[in-house]
Amino acid sequence: MTTHPTLSDIDRYAGGDPGLDEATVWSIEVHLEGCADCRARLAGSTTAESRALIAEVAVAVDREIAAGPAPRRSHAGIRQRVLVVALLPWVAMTTTVLVTAALLSHLLPEMPSLVLLLAPLAPLPGVAAAWSRRLDPAWELIAGTPSAGLAMLLRRTAVVLALVIPVLAGFGAGQGELALMLLPCLAFTAATLLLGSLVGVHRAAIGLMVAWAAVVVAPSLATAELPVLLEPAATGAWAVATVALAALTLLRAGQFRRLTTF
């Protein structure tokens, strides 16, 4: 930082005094660029002539801005749209299945709650669609970009969860089983991502859905009893499983940079 020019120098600079030599003008200009205080002093010493010029320029700039093309709308909307458009059919399908399950449970009160049995699987079709070679047409383009990776997958998964969880929460609050409705669903989402880092998210989602249907849903429908896993006592275990699976997924973040998980 140079020493501040004197007020009289600034006055002479503002007035365009021909007596001021070029070297002094340059040093004042360099100083003004970096010193707000001196710029304020300069504003106080401007002549009527230069104020009129500045006002004229301001009017001209405003006129050009008004006449020019409107500023382009932001591109932020595109990113959300691609997700919503691609995922909406899957989420809509899930919601339909859940509503049907709720209706069936209502008609057959002696059976265990179908919604509770299917809730853990609710986000999986959407998660599979979010990161799938078959369902994302631009997979080959995306797989070669620096954004491809766990952060992108998590962003897409968050969109799916944001669409699915309100539906589940609606059913859960109605039956007073909010935690049992949501925790298994989060645990299964984390498990899909973790397993997906090994065999691909699409395959992981299908595998987990088949396994849960065969091991838990089918037997409990056959015996007409809710499994131990979905009793209120199991809530703590589901919470621990969710946190552990999520942590393990983060440890395997590097695996998601390549095509193999698609």
Partner: peptide, 17 residues
């Protein structure tokens, strides 16, 4: 993505990059 305009598609790829 068939619903994207050329500009949206190119901008989206630029954002991914």
């Amino acid at each position: 993505y068939p619903r994207f305009t050329v500009r949206e598609f190119v901008s989206y790829m630029a954002w991914l990059k």
